[in-house]
Design a protein around this nucleic acid. Sequence first.
DNA 1: TTGTATGCGTTATCAG
DNA 2: CTGATAACGCATACAA
Lengths: 365, 365
Amino acid sequence: MSKSSSITIKDVAQSAGCGVATASRVLNNSGPASADVRERVERAARELGFSFSSIGRALQSRRSMTVGCLVPSLANPVFAEAVQGVQAELLGSGYQMLISCSNYDGAADEAAIEMLLSKETDALVATMVAPDRSPTLRLAQKRGIPILLMFHDPLDGFITSYVDNFDAAKVVARQFADLGHRRTAFLALRFTTSDRSRNRYAGFHSECRARGLPDPALIEIGEAEANQPDRLAAILAQHPKLTAIFASNDFLAIAVQKAARLLGWRVPQDLSVVGFDGIEVGRLLEKPLATIETSPEAMGRQAARSLLNLLQGGPSIQPPALPFAFRAGATLALPNPEKGDDGRGATQPPSDLPAEPQAQTRMNR
Amino acid sequence: MSKSSSITIKDVAQSAGCGVATASRVLNNSGPASADVRERVERAARELGFSFSSIGRALQSRRSMTVGCLVPSLANPVFAEAVQGVQAELLGSGYQMLISCSNYDGAADEAAIEMLLSKETDALVATMVAPDRSPTLRLAQKRGIPILLMFHDPLDGFITSYVDNFDAAKVVARQFADLGHRRTAFLALRFTTSDRSRNRYAGFHSECRARGLPDPALIEIGEAEANQPDRLAAILAQHPKLTAIFASNDFLAIAVQKAARLLGWRVPQDLSVVGFDGIEVGRLLEKPLATIETSPEAMGRQAARSLLNLLQGGPSIQPPALPFAFRAGATLALPNPEKGDDGRGATQPPSDLPAEPQAQTRMNR
DNA sequence: TTGTATGCGTTATCAG
DNA sequence: CTGATAACGCATACAA
């Protein structure tokens, strides 16, 4: 058990027989030093096992070399992967990441940002319940701290790394419409606390309107329903005429299928299901999940790059939305004619389209 | 745009017309102060929007109030959930979490710990490639920094939060054996860099031996094979006599089923599959996945609690292994008599056991 | 009860 | 080229 309690630059200087300023210059290559003293300092540092105190440094340089990261939850792989992307991109930049989760709670968001700020992070990357109404975020902004949003649509003074949920949802609506689906629904897990969910519904709704189709139903559920197939089934049972459902994320889409099975509904014959996110496991399923494919990791990486750029004093430029792609799957098919109440469109899908939607339909931007 | 650049306690003291020491005492409730000055200081702090600089504090108190966290990857939900657990438990303790990922690379592990150490984290919680052979971790230990391992088996001077992989794997072996499986295999994704994987194989192997069954095959694969069903299928095809396979994690178990389908093998009729981890989505599948259920979040929570305890100067006590449970599923059944080369045992499973394994078989410890 | 002075580890300044 | 010294923001002994 060596004494080991921190070796400071003062110790090094003393051991090398020079002043601390000289030692600092040598160790940082930040100024002149004779070959002689340079040698002595380096040897002393090596022998003493010296390493800089980032706290001392932070105090003097006014930069903590950390970035704060706030996401709703790491239990959701989408956010976990985004954080992973941020982390990966930050690696080697000298910046470390301080992380915090809100559990989709707006008040926790505020507390977390406040905490991060009090830790004097040099920058922030966040996904929040309501970034547009966060006083703490505004405060951070006023302080001149670089801020990057993830998953959110572009917002006034902030840069954001995102996928165009509205557009993506329109693509799903188009898929449904092209197959002849008329009775559709959007199944939302956290509608009130997720602008992603809201934007997806908006885009879905908008495209249905534009095509003269009935408005899609909005089915909001909570955690409990999402995790208990029987409860979810009970909810689905209230919408017997549905022929297609757009779930606000892939896990939900998988849960819907479970619930449908409980009701004796076949997927996709009785009910088409499309998810969102494009999680990897979706393609491994017996019935590969049709979904919108995105890359949370790329999002995190882009966010981190923008952040580093800002940190270096670069200009504040909003990059374009990240690409997404419709991924075809076995959970999407023509509507069941027996299920519809009117049957219009169902019996006569546009003949210029294949029954099975093609893969990798499109990339936006 | 107010000037806003940080308000220090000096500003507060000046505004309140008192010395910094007094202001510090008031704001920290750490000493005497007249009601009068107390009032003035508090008002000044409020009006100026003062908040402590944790850097200044850290420098003076020699504690950064951060804990470093190192995991292989956040893209693996098991680790992400564990981190989430750590985070959740740390919430409100005043400690913040600095996070780092190694991508299952031992060298990156060293670099990450070094980085964390240089950031002067007050404690460490980590899952590494080889914690037993990490010089940097030893160094941290020597410095007296509280260290908590996650997922690893108990190790010399460290406390660890873990599930007994060896025991859990034995349970899987028992399930296979009870059904009459003789030709089994362990499918390992990262055998060389994961002691979890190795311990699972060891337990599986050990139990097979103990029962006088043939040694299970060890099939090691890489990322590429795991992600490409056709390549995985090619590998599976080399083991045509297998009747049951134990995958080192649930995703792999799902991938195996995909590969099996590609080969025309039915699950579970031609091949039984059991996974590990107990990811939520496993129960929602058309064929619910048989697996060992664990709770990474609980692991993270336990680790954080132990850490906080250590940080408060508490004694270093190794808690017992966390519980696990075998989760029955539709991917496990009797072996196909036509597949075996000898058929012994397959045609005559123990008659005192139901064909369908019972749910929630057991909890250990 | 209060304020002054000191030190925590670092770097920048500035005089030698 | 070198080395005292003054910040940086805070808490704490110690003196008043």
